[in-house]
Structures are given as structure tokens and as C-alpha cells.
Simulated assay, not measured.
Amino acid sequence: MARIIRFHELGGPEVLRIEDVDVPAPGPGQVQIRVKALGINRAEALLRSGNYIETAPLPSGLGLEAAGIVEAVGEGVDGFAPGDGVSIIPPISMVRTPAYGELVAFPAEYVVRHPPSLSWVAAAAIWMQYLTAYGALIDIARLQKGDFIAVTAASSSVGLAAIQIVNMVGATPIAITRTAAKRQSLQDVGAAHVIASQEEDLEMRLREIAGADGVRVVFDAVAGPIFGPLTAAMSSGGILIEYGGLSSAPTPFPLPAVLGKCLTLRGYLVHEITRDPARLDAAKRFILEGFASGALKPVISRTFPFEQIVEAHRFLESNEQFGKIVVTV
């Protein structure tokens, strides 16, 4: 028997339940992991509330990230053995392979030996945020030294990962946050510039920072009315990569800027990277090299024990966090 977290109805954090279940042995190609820590992502809150790109068959498990110790391996698995310390690449479907549990099984291709210097908490906070930022900025936008990059929702775990990756390649990260409350914290983790979008003129500040050439890459999780000032401050031939939709307001199509500057507006999901073995291998190398050099380091906002999963989700939805929320098992 092992404890897992499931929900039997859609709703707020209170629908999450801890249940005891019989856990089968790992199937062919699977690695069974004794979980030590879970990374918490906004996607899980969206699935739980019925607003995710995937529909949850009730009752449903959930979860995209975990770190722990290999308990057993299924038939045909090479390269892993009981006792190995590992972490999990976010799967394509969290309802088919949920991570919220004491004992979970994942396809071997989504299991990684993380650097032994990382704690369980840090190891559970790697892959979703750094793969998301890498895929957008390095794989798609081909970030280069000297580029100006605008990062919205900058205090999120993905936003902070993006700031670190931008600095790693010698470009200039411009962090965009709602108020000035997190300005110093963002500067402390490497933001060259911080703009409080509710307190400052966003377009004007971006133009002041990036100069005549403008912002070449925008990495946006918000959408909504912010599209106007963001695209107005972009450079000719620039690219806006949209990976979220935190704003509940309609998103206008900025036709004059798109036509006048030949802009690319591009939707993006981390699945583009994780479902492509060659691109995933390149991403893992880049990220692991970043950890080895010290250029990348996950920022942990707060940890909760497994028994406080409801409180962890409430904190996630409060938008008070700065960095990653992790649950320890």
C-alpha cells in the first residue's frame, strides 16, 4: 500500500484527497520511484479545477514533477537500478502518469539522474521550469548574446528559470511583474531590469531599456491587454512566445505591430520538447551543464509536507510565491 493524492470532483484545493492504494509492480519500460519530493505547478491546479488542456477522468491523479529513489524497474529497462536517485521529466499526460504519490511509476524515458549535489527539494523543482524556459528561449527563439528579452510573470518558477537562462547566454533579461513589491528579489536573482506593469508605462519603459532596436524576444505567460505594449516595444522580426494565459481579459491581436514589424506570435507548450527525443536530449544537456557550472539554481518559495497538499495548492493560487512550491514526502 502507498498513499496517493486524487480528486473525485472538480473544484478548489479542498477537493484533493490523500488515499491508500495498492501499487502494482512497474510494467515493461517503467521505473518505479519512492518519492521524496514533488514539484507543484499551476497546470495541476488547472486540471483539478477543470480548466486544463487535458480532461481529468474522475477520480483522477495529478502531478508532473517528482524526485526520489528508484524502487524497482520493469522489464526492458536499462540504465537504472534500485537505489538510484532520480527526478522526473514532465510527462505528456499527468492523468495517465500522475506524480502525486509516495510510490509512482514512470516510463524510463522520462526519468533522469539529476546532479547528486541537488537536494530532493531542488531536484523536484528542475524540469518543468527549466525545460519550459529552454524550449522557448534556446530551442525556438535561438537566444543570442546581446538580445533583450522581456519575461512576464517573472517571479514564477518558469520566469525565474528564464532569467537565469538569459544570463547564462549573455543576453539581457527584463523582468515584468505587476507591482514593485518583488523588484529587489528579481534583481537579486539576476534580472537586469524590472518593470512593475501596474505602476509604470510598460511600453515606454521597454523602449527606454532596449533602445532603438527594441526587444527581440518576449516570453509571456499572461496574454490579455498586455499584448499591446509588449508588441509595440518589440524589434523588427521579433518573436513573442506565449506559454500561458493568466489574464482573464480578452487578448487583442496587435495587427499594426505584427504587420509593421513582421513579428512572429507563437504558442508554445513544453510538450514540444519532451515528445521529441533529440530535442529533449539537447535540453537535458544544456540544463545539467547549467547546474554543474552554477549558472542555474532553482529558487524555492516554500515547502509543505505531503499531508498539507491542500494548503500547498492554496498558496499556489494566492500568487504570493516567489519561485517554486515543493511538497516533501
Results as ranks from 00 to 15, higher is better:
Ile88Gly: 02
Pro229Val: 11
Ala282Arg: 12
Arg17His: 06
Gly294Ala: 06
Gly290Thr: 10
Met234Val: 07
Glu208Met: 07
Asn41Gly: 10
Pro277Phe: 11
Glu9Tyr: 01
Gly29Cys: 15
Ala141Trp: 01
His313Asp: 07
Arg34Met: 11
Arg216Trp: 03
Arg285Met: 14
Val299Ser: 05
Arg216His: 13
Asp281Asn: 11
Leu202Thr: 14
Met234Ala: 02
Ile287Lys: 07
Arg207Tyr: 07
Ala191Ser: 11
Thr177Gly: 14
Tyr268Ser: 11
Ala123Cys: 02
Ala192Ile: 03
Ala154Val: 12
Glu44Gln: 10
Ala153Met: 09
Ile92Arg: 14
Ser185Cys: 05
Ala283Asn: 02
Ala232Asn: 10
Ala295Ile: 03
Ala295Val: 09
Gln308Arg: 14
Gly159Ala: 05
Phe306Val: 09
Thr152Ser: 14
Arg6Met: 00
Val77Glu: 00
Val218Arg: 05
Pro91Asp: 06
Phe291His: 07
Phe227Gln: 03
Val86Ile: 13
Gln32Asp: 11
Asp276Asn: 15
Ser117Glu: 15
Ile149Ala: 13
Ile40Gly: 00
Lys145Asp: 02
Gly290Asn: 09
Ala278Val: 14
Pro305Glu: 08
Arg205Met: 14
Val77Lys: 02
Gln144Asn: 12
Val329Gln: 11
Ile273Pro: 00
Val215Gln: 05
Pro107Trp: 03
Gly101Cys: 10
Phe80Gln: 04
Ala257Leu: 03
Ile195Lys: 13
Leu64Met: 13
Val217Ala: 14
